[in-house]
Design a protein around this nucleic acid. Sequence first.
DNA 1: TGCCAGGCCGGGT
DNA 2: ACCCGGCATGGC
Length: 192
Amino acid sequence: MVGAILTQNTAWTNVEKAITALRGASLLNPRAIDRVPQAHLAGLIRPAGYYNMKAERLKQVTRFLLTHYGGSVRRMCRTELPVLRGELLEISGVGEETADSILLYAGDLPIFVVDAYTRRVLERHGLILANTRYGEIQRLFMTHLPADAALFNEYHALLVAVGKTYCRRTSDCDGCPLRYDLPNGSPLLPRP
DNA sequence: TGCCAGGCCGGGT
DNA sequence: ACCCGGCATGGC
């Protein structure tokens, strides 16, 4: 859950530094995060960027977990998925991607995470338009795959891996192993 | 040296 | 319902 907050618009390598600092300070549990002064928390997660906002958000998520589920992720994940998703989205600092990341990666619940890489890769292949909504992209995966957390986890990891290598900027398409040309008139192509 | 990274919020149209 | 500025460090 900490990782889901810290990685917001931030490279994971920077998140790792912050998490290492938190672990070193024995702050990777809800009680400790709840107790520690927000300014001190901010200092520790400095490498992850946006450290003041993220310290606030870690406090918010921690407070939610403590007050609603006694600080137990296990207990939290017994709640029905759509209900829990709604609860997470109520937290200030938790949007759709962060909520779904928590559900999938922390909770092992079958929900597909849509991020910038997912969007870019699909867009490059003409499978979605630039303004396609989060929920619509998510449905695209979830209506065509079995609801399996391990599968969603792996699928998303592969999209990120391919995206990092071949789909960062427009010119990075060169050499992409997934590259292909859609036939003229394909319904998958964006309309001119 | 500048540009950008696995978002989200709040205020303005 | 969209659009935008702000938030911030580290790596290439």
